[in-house]
Every structure is written in structure tokens, then in C-alpha cells.
Simulated assay, not measured.
Amino acid sequence: MNKTIFSTGIFFGVLAVLLGAFGAHGLEKLIDSDAILTYETGIRYQMYHALFLLILANTRFLPEQHKKLVFYLIVLGMVLFSFSIYFLATNALTDFDFKKIALLTPLGGTLLIFGWLVLGYKVFKSKPSLPL
């Protein structure tokens, strides 16, 4: 599971860099500055959580089932949160009104919060053993 978590962190990190470059160089003339800032928020949170996954994969004091739960919460939250923001920020470029799926953003954010809370709870409740 650690390899899967680490690989997923790498994937989302690379994707954040690619989407960030696309936003900085490909979207700057297509959407307004407020939409660019919104898009950058999605990139930032995606990168934060990609790095989070790299760290999670290397923690040795959490049982695998706890890591797996945190992993699923973070990945699903990251996809719902960041990708809904990307779609909302680029809404003006498509015929589909992405405002119809705007509720995915807070749902994704809630899952990210739960992922952090579950991690904190499991760490707090775990018996001291190996450091990170």
C-alpha cells in the first residue's frame, strides 16, 4: 500500500505542475484574473495533498488500514475539490455550466478535512513506536 500511496502522490504532484503551467501560460488570455486566482487555489491544494501523500506513504507507525482510510479520503477529496475548482474557473470556456456541480467543491473540502482529522485521531490514539 505504501508504494501505491507514494505513486499516487507523485502522480498528483506531476499533474499539479502540468496544470499549473497550463494555467499560467495557456489560460492567462482566456479567462479573467479572478478565475486564474481560483484555478491557482485548486493547484495549490492539489500540490499540498500530493506532498501529504508522499509523507503518509513513509509513516511507519500507522497500521495499513488506517493509512488506507486516510489515503482514500485525501484522494477523493483532492479530486472533488481541486478538479471542481478547475472546471468552475474555466466555466466561461465551455458550453456546460459547471456551476451545476459547484457542491462538489465543499464536499471535496470536507473529505480533505476528514482525512486530516482521521490521521490526527489515529496518531493520537496510536501507541508510541517508531518515529516518522
Rank of each mutant, 00 (worst) to 15 (best):
A92C: 10
F61K: 02
A24D: 03
S129C: 02
V17H: 05
F61H: 11
K67P: 04
Y48H: 14
T8L: 10
I113Q: 11
I31Q: 03
S129M: 02
F11M: 01
T8E: 12
L27G: 03
I74P: 03
L15W: 00
L15R: 06
E40F: 03
L30H: 02
L76D: 06
V14S: 01
F52R: 08
F83Q: 05
Y45H: 03
G9K: 08
A92Y: 04
I36M: 11
S129L: 09
I55G: 00
L56E: 02
Y39F: 15
L76W: 13
I55D: 03
M1K: 04
P63V: 13
I10L: 08
P128M: 05
H66F: 10
Q65C: 00
K68P: 02
G13P: 10
T110N: 02
F83S: 10
M78F: 06
T94I: 08
V17G: 01
L103D: 12
F71V: 02
D95M: 08
M1L: 08
I113S: 13
Y72T: 00
L88Q: 14
F87K: 07
R44E: 13
L107S: 04
L73W: 12
K122N: 12
F124W: 13
Y48T: 15
Y48M: 14
F83E: 06
T94R: 10
F71I: 01
K125D: 11
L111I: 03
K127P: 01
S129G: 07
D34E: 06
F87C: 10
T94E: 14
K100R: 14
A57Q: 12
F61W: 07
E28M: 11
G42S: 07
F83H: 04
Y48K: 07
I85C: 06
G120S: 11
I101H: 06
H25D: 01
A102R: 13
G120M: 14
L80N: 10
A57H: 02
F83A: 02
Q65N: 13
K100F: 14
L132M: 09
L53V: 15
P128G: 05
K3E: 15
Y86P: 08
L69R: 07
V70M: 03
M1N: 03
L103G: 12
D34A: 11
F71M: 08
L103H: 14
F22T: 09
L107Y: 07
M78K: 01
Y121H: 11
H66E: 14
K122I: 14
Y48P: 07
L53T: 10
N58R: 01
R60P: 00
Q46D: 15
L30K: 06
G23N: 01
G115H: 03
K127D: 01
I101V: 15
F6N: 07
L112Q: 04
V70D: 05
I43W: 00
I85V: 12
R44A: 14
L107E: 10
K3M: 08
L103E: 10
F81K: 00
L19A: 04
I55F: 15
M1T: 05
L37F: 12
F96D: 06
I5L: 09
F6L: 13
G120R: 06
L69N: 07
T41L: 11
Y39P: 01
F83V: 04
I55Q: 03
G77W: 09
F83I: 09
G109Y: 11
E40W: 01
I101D: 04
F71Q: 10
F52V: 04
V118I: 15
Y72G: 00
K3V: 15
S126T: 14
V79D: 01
L88G: 05
E40D: 13
L76M: 13
